[in-house]
Design a protein around this nucleic acid. Structure first.
Lengths: 266, 266
DNA sequence: GTCTATAGCGTGATAGAC
DNA sequence: GTCTATCACGCTATAGAC
């Protein structure tokens, strides 16, 4: 093992550019292989759910032997965590257009609608990230911290959470939220509400009595509504706002929520 | 197979009481065995999580061979569904003391607090019921319908949901909820909110920034609060209300949320 | 790097003796 | 009813040839 590393270092110092070219190509190829593996894994999860994700299946899909996968990932769990990171990044991308909305209440509502839309459009991905193993869910924050060049994970690291707190602060500054309100608590509770709407839809589809949009709008109005441009708590027959529709348009489709569930068994 | 059934019928008609006594004792023993199996299964789930539940482990616990379990349950899934039914019934029991609260808003709040308290106190059970397989979650409603002597499952079958709708209706009759509000939508969204608070705590413990009680109270105030006996959206430093504490006192403890997670693998 | 082969463990469910 | 024995799988991960 050590001799290999030594050889590489020797080439870098002694032979200059061509060797660097080699090393670069090497690492590029390795990176490409990692992507191929993750691509295959993501497709399996989207089609059949996380429980059906196995090293054998991934290997089949990329046309390598199962053993080869271990050259790029230490374990199945590491692949799962990578998928979570990827998926969470995808969720954050969804929020980008929302960030431009000037009014903080409307921004928060659009955020909530985009969040729910993502979960419903990518049920298996959402399940993997937020409804599976706590260690997977924790992985999204750790990697978010790494991306920010921080070594420790603390309260304000997460971009999505920060967006919420910022909007709530703006609302509070406008006097549209009581000065006594604790922003962190509010953000957490608001996130939980949106998560609950998605999670309940995914794991109890039969529970759904009303259209998703009405439920989401009712919740958003209860939290943020009425204080500005419509009546308190009034839930009309209207469809999702243009913002939500727009957010939905950016989504790739996952497998349907109920169809692919229940593979032979984990 | 047929001959056995025939013999039973013959005894019932011909020899009268003693035979009935036999049959009764037989069925009693069978029922007892079912209970023993479910008890063992419940303990395993509470200690190690549902993923760790296997027929072998149950068999070990009840000191029978794995094969014998199949005389009482057709499959592992059937045991899981039975556990869900049981767990949901336990949740409903939790609501009994709450039903007496006269004020509908306070009743709803107490309901929400009891719900969350149950989920936090029995994380593995809650996971099994509401966060695992949609077919498990669906099972609670089906059996609830059976208990009510109904053959079809429709909107209003569920006792918990009915409690919510009733309270919301009372609120609406008092003019404390806009006449335009759709009760079904409100109940669904409110349930989703409470579910989200529990589910997020269970699957993303690191996310928790504030005390559970503050989050719950903030959510309940956003939905129902302020319109009556305290300021709008004011979240004080107070602890859980007596109602919630009371509800908690009725709970049996599950395994801790994070400790027993992640058994070798499903 | 990639393969084959396999260790080592687990699972749900069943056949058939007693 | 209860058991033993086993089928038929599945899995992760690794050893060692090439």
């Amino acid at each position: 093992v050590n001799s290999v590393q030594y050889n590489l270092a020797f080439q870098l110092i002694d032979t200059g550019m061509p060797a660097i070219g080699h090393a670069e190509r090497r690492s590029r190829q390795k990176q490409a292989m990692r992507e191929r593996i993750l691509d295959a894994a993501r497709r399996i999860v989207m089609r059949e759910g996380f429980a059906a994700l196995s090293m054998r299946k991934i290997a089949d899909a990329v046309e390598y032997s199962p053993a080869s996968l271990y050259l790029h990932f230490a374990s199945r769990d590491e692949i799962a965590r990578a998928l979570c990171t990827e998926g969470y990044a995808q969720l954050l991308e969804t929020f980008a257009p929302v960030a431009d909305i000037a009014d903080p209440a409307e921004r928060l509502k659009a955020l909530g609608r985009a969040y729910v839309a993502f979960g419903i459009a990518n049920p298996q991905t959402y399940r993997l990230i937020f409804m599976q193993d706590p260690s997977y869910t924790a992985a999204v924050l750790v990697s978010a911290a790494e991306a920010n060049d921080r070594s420790s994970v603390d309260d304000t690291d997460d971009a999505a959470f920060r967006m919420m707190v910022d909007a709530l602060a703006a609302l509070q500054a406008d006097g549209r939220l009581p000065a006594s309100a604790n922003l962190g608590v509010w953000a957490e509770a608001l996130w939980a509400t949106m998560h609950g709407i998605v999670a309940l839809r995914l794991s109890w589809p039969m529970f759904a009595r009303a259209s998703l949009d009405r439920v989401v709008d009712t919740a958003l109005d209860a939290w943020l509504g009425g204080q500005r441009d419509h009546d308190v708590h009034d839930v009309g027959e209207r469809d999702a706002s243009p913002d939500a529709a727009d957010a939905k348009a950016h989504m790739r489709a996952d497998a349907g929520p109920t169809t692919a569930t229940k593979p032979p068994r984990a």
